[in-house]
Design a protein around this nucleic acid. Structure first.
Length: 506
RNA sequence: GAGAUGCUAGCUCAGUCGGUAGAGCAACUGCCUUUUAAGCAGUGGGUCCCGGGUUCGAGUCCCGGGCGUCUCACCA
């Protein structure tokens, strides 16, 4: 609400604000020494039938419900961990504070000193002796009511919820819980990695070449050096430089930026963990993924499974393993392995096979694009329980090592859960000459019109020439992992402030 | 980027055939000193997303725009 065109409620709140000031109180005091959270009060004073009545406990929180009755009344205050009821009347409070108490609004933040007691109905409450206004609410918050677990007038407008996430957090307790859980998951991931002696590092987010993945970068400019810079699309090539530098177990858990579409599964900035381990390969990464997910399940749900939508997902290891071409054959009957004797398998034959099973590939130009389209259409949606899809085509994996004696297939896997790719891992290519050749192939594909390829990075080739130990590497999309554990259907529900187009003021 | 769909009071939503704006909660006033979706009585509150058009008259019909959501496409 603008100050030029105030609503009725806005004007009333300003009047209340002035009234508090007239009583000689500061409606926005500098500090308040909160002694207990509402949860601690309940644990300390209400866990037994006998309640110490004579003590004064001091807490603070935001009012989200009030029930005045003549000169007395109840308010419910909420803090980060819970709620507690506060009772007051004209005898428990000084006359000034009683005046303030009667005029409290839903949304006000108050401090309370009061005696613990139970009401007739048994609810844990505080009989207020002192009330302090800590922050006067001016713009009203949505009022959500609840009875018998049923929620009335839920604050549900998604746009407002995302744009004013603070309201969402105040009013929707499940939102608050999910973001606390996100933090816990990330802490547990770090615990897991650190315990296994992986070193957490921070590599550049601003890079002069945006490589390491095939995606459109955000572009910016450094004034003093007068050079273009890109927000990283992946930390991969820097982390592998660390392998060259003798760091044997390393990870980075932080933001990547991709200048691409926004959807329920994509936000332009998203969180990724990349892991590299020297003297290991993709199979070691597979074991790491299994261990990590079942560790998280134990820590978060206490079981080795998690409920997502209508599915109960068992994260118990070992997970299933299926080869990329194998599972395509399983689901569609098409055996693309039989085409691989050729150096250049026929696009036309792949296309006619795709048409037979009703997959539209009219816009695609290469054999592997056609195969991948079939995979996305006919395989991906059915990968509900955890499965490792292995043996990816080299054509789409320019940083991965070939399977020995196979020119088309690399040592790579992607873990899938609930039809979603949860990560990507491979045996890291450490042959500088082969890597250079692969980069050049990418450059050729770009010249041929591919708009997303992995950029050549000559300095990285130079690093490989110093020698990188054989290594396994892994990337895990943290937002999607959190979605799994919080049963969220949109990535916006696990990112506090998802990107929205700014709303212009008139 | 394409298609579908939505935008009305602080929140959740009605609004018929085009006739000048409604409910519940919230707010305000009065009553009410253990309530809990508190209750009872009364009152106020609107840029109907924005801009055009048609019409005597538009929340409603038409055109353009904005923002969101869903699905698809790209991607993790």
């Amino acid at each position: 609400m603008s100050e030029e065109n105030p609503s009725e409620i806005y004007k009333q709140r300003l009047q209340k604000l002035n009234k508090i000031k007239e009583l000689g109180k500061n409606p926005y005091p500098n500090n308040y020494q909160k002694e207990y959270s509402t949860k601690e009060i309940k644990e300390k004073y209400f866990s037994t039938d006998e309640i110490e009545q004579s003590v004064l406990v001091k807490t603070a929180g935001r009012i989200f419900a009030k029930r005045p009755m003549g000169k007395a009344g109840f308010v419910h205050i909420q803090d980060e961990e819970g709620i507690i009821q506060v009772y007051a009347n004209d005898k428990t409070l000084s006359s000034d504070e009683h005046e303030i108490f009667l005029n409290l609004d839903i949304g006000d933040i108050i401090g309370v000193e009061g005696e613990p007691f139970r009401t007739k109905t048994g609810e844990a409450s505080l009989r207020a002796k002192v009330i302090d206004m800590l922050s006067k609410n001016i713009s009203p918050i949505p009022v959500v009511k609840e009875k018998d677990g049923k929620i009335y007038d839920a604050f549900s407008d998604v746009e407002t919820r995302y744009r004013q996430r603070y309201l969402d957090l105040i009013v929707n307790s499940s939102v608050r819980k999910n973001f606390i859980l996100r933090s816990k998951i990330i802490t547990e991931i770090r615990n897991f990695m650190n315990e296994r002696k992986f070193l957490e590092v921070e590599t550049p987010m601003m890079q002069s070449i945006a490589s390491g993945a095939a995606a459109q970068p955000f572009k910016t400019h450094h004034n003093a050096l007068n050079i273009p810079l890109y927000l990283r699309i992946a930390p991969e090539l820097f982390l592998k430089r660390l392998l060259v530098g003798g760091v044997e177990k390393v990870y980075e858990l932080n933001r990547n930026f991709r200048n691409e579409g926004i959807s329920t599964k994509h936000n332009p900035e998203f969180t990724m963990m990349e892991v590299y381990q020297a003297y290991a390969d993709y199979k070691d990464m597979m074991a790491l993924v299994e261990d990590l997910f079942s560790y998280l399940a134990q820590k978060i749900t206490g079981k080795d499974e998690v409920v997502y939508g209508e599915h109960t997902i068992s994260l118990k290891k070992p997970w299933q393993q299926k080869t990329y071409l194998g599972i395509i054959k399983e689901k569609t009957g098409i055996d693309f392995n039989s085409y691989l004797a050729d150096e250049n398998p026929s696009v036309e034959e792949a296309k006619s096979k795709a048409k037979e099973i009703g997959v539209d590939v009219s816009k695609l130009n290469t054999f592997w694009e056609v195969v991948d389209e079939i995979f996305s259409e006919k395989v991906e949606p059915y990968l509900i329980q955890p499965v490792f899809i292995t043996h990816y085509p080299k054509a789409v994996s320019p940083l991965a090592k070939n399977i020995p004696d196979n020119k088309h297939i690399v040592e790579r896997f992607e873990p899938y859960i609930v039809g979603r790719e949860m990560g990507n891992a491979f045996s890291e290519l450490n042959d500088p000459f082969e890597q250079e050749k692969r980069f050049l192939e990418q450059v050729k594909m770009k010249e041929a019109g591919a708009h997303e390829i992995i950029e050549m990075d000559e300095d990285y080739i130079e690093a490989l020439k110093v020698g990188m130990p054989p290594a396994g590497g892994l990337g895990i999309g943290i937002d999607r992992l959190v979605m799994l554990f919080t049963n969220a259907s949109s990535i916006k529900d696990v990112i506090l402030f998802p990107l929205l187009r700014p709303k212009l003021e008139k």
